[in-house]
Write a protein that binds this DNA or RNA. Structure first.
Length: 336
DNA sequence: AGAATTTGACCGGT
DNA sequence: ACCGGTCAAATTCT
């Protein structure tokens, strides 16, 4: 049992390592392509997306592509080399549809706080009506973004907690949707500086926004995904990887590099991220990059697919969402 | 004054 | 028992 789970963990670690590596390459490639794109008028033959490289020209893009392929190939090999049969059962979580009692669900009856009267709240030590009474909800839908800016998403967030995390240099901050009290929006996010690169933040989004943007500037909403993706304003931004989660959280963090401005966490106090709400940053819209990656085995260049949606091409595109359904199903099925 | 953040306490999962 | 996530009073900000 134990050895099995250890084995699983080491495998998943390998997988993640490889993915991280591949992801880094992919990011570089994007930069490269983007750079080439910006130089398009000078040297059109360099554009990789369409056709071809110049014969005899040692195209760095090609090399990167090869590395990417290799990296992801290794990943697949790792998974292949692991015999899932040995591990057997994989608890497939029911996606978060319960959420029983009090908790932060605004629709939930005030069962545990005894009506949540201000009275009872005050007597903390005295037994019931204590704060912190909630039921931990199953982590429904989470994905992780590595970004230099924590306001990348432009939603309106309110910080509700901060905590020192074991083995982490930096505390983790907890945010919930500003509209939770009014609209019961359950979206939350957690922000934590990366140890390896303190300029980068790991942002874990949990749940989708259900708030409507009635009191917000809805104009952003439709474009939200793309905004995250490219953030043309600041040239930035986030190399992102989306990670679905079923239950036994895999929290695989896939890092990426990006350049741009840094915002410290305090900036989140400010107003700049108050103006947007609604539109979900999420799955439905994200391209199925991962599937493409997984198929690189058989096919060759899919890099064009990394661009999501309407190709609102900007020279500073720096993104890539990965649909990780496949990754997760892999992880799940290997019990990672 | 109201909104947002901070921070220590508390709860639940492992 | 420990640790992470949430609550809510206190504090700070606008």
């Amino acid at each position: 049992m134990d050895s099995n789970s250890n084995n699983n963990k080491s495998i998943s670690r390998k997988v993640v390592d490889q993915l991280v590596e591949g992801y880094g390459f992919a990011t570089q490639l994007q930069r490269l392509l983007s750079h080439q794109h910006s130089n398009n008028h000078i040297d059109q033959t360099r554009i990789v997306s369409g056709s071809g490289s110049v014969p005899g020209d040692p195209d760095p893009a090609e090399e990167l592509i090869a590395k990417i392929l290799e990296s992801f190939h290794k990943t697949i090999s790792v998974l292949d080399s692991f015999d899932p049969i040995a591990d057997v059962s994989v608890p497939i979580a029911v996606e978060g549809s319960r959420n029983a009692s009090c908790g932060d669900d605004s629709t939930a009856p005030a069962s545990c706080n005894g009506g949540d009267s201000g009275e009872s709240r005050k007597k903390l030590g005295v037994g019931k009506g204590k704060r912190g009474c909630y039921t931990r909800k199953p982590r429904s839908h989470t994905w992780i973004v590595i970004a230099r800016r924590i306001d990348e998403d432009r939603y309106a967030w309110r910080k509700y907690g901060q905590k020192e995390i074991l083995n982490s240099k930096f505390p983790r901050s907890y945010f919930r949707c500003t509209h939770k009290p009014t609209q019961g929006c359950k979206a939350t996010k957690q922000v934590q500086k990366q140890e390896q690169d303190p300029e980068m933040f790991q942002i874990t989004y949990i749940g989708h926004h259900t708030c409507t943007a009635s009191d917000q500037t809805q104009t952003k909403t439709e474009q939200f995904d793309q905004e995250i993706i490219m953030d043309s304003d600041n040239t930035v931004a986030a190399t992102t990887v989306k990670v679905h989660e079923q239950e036994n959280n895999i929290s695989s963090v896939i890092t990426g590099l990006s350049a741009g401005m840094v915002k410290e966490e305090e900036n989140n106090n400010g107003d700049h991220n108050k103006d947007y709400c609604e539109g979900s940053s999420t799955d439905g819209d994200l391209s199925l990059v991962w599937q493409d990656v997984m198929m690189l085995d058989d096919h060759q260049h899919h890099q064009n697919h990394y661009y999501h949606g309407e190709t609102r091409t900007t020279s500073s595109q720096q993104f890539s969402f990965i649909d990780n359904d496949q990754l997760y199903s892999l992880f799940d099925s290997y019990g990672a």
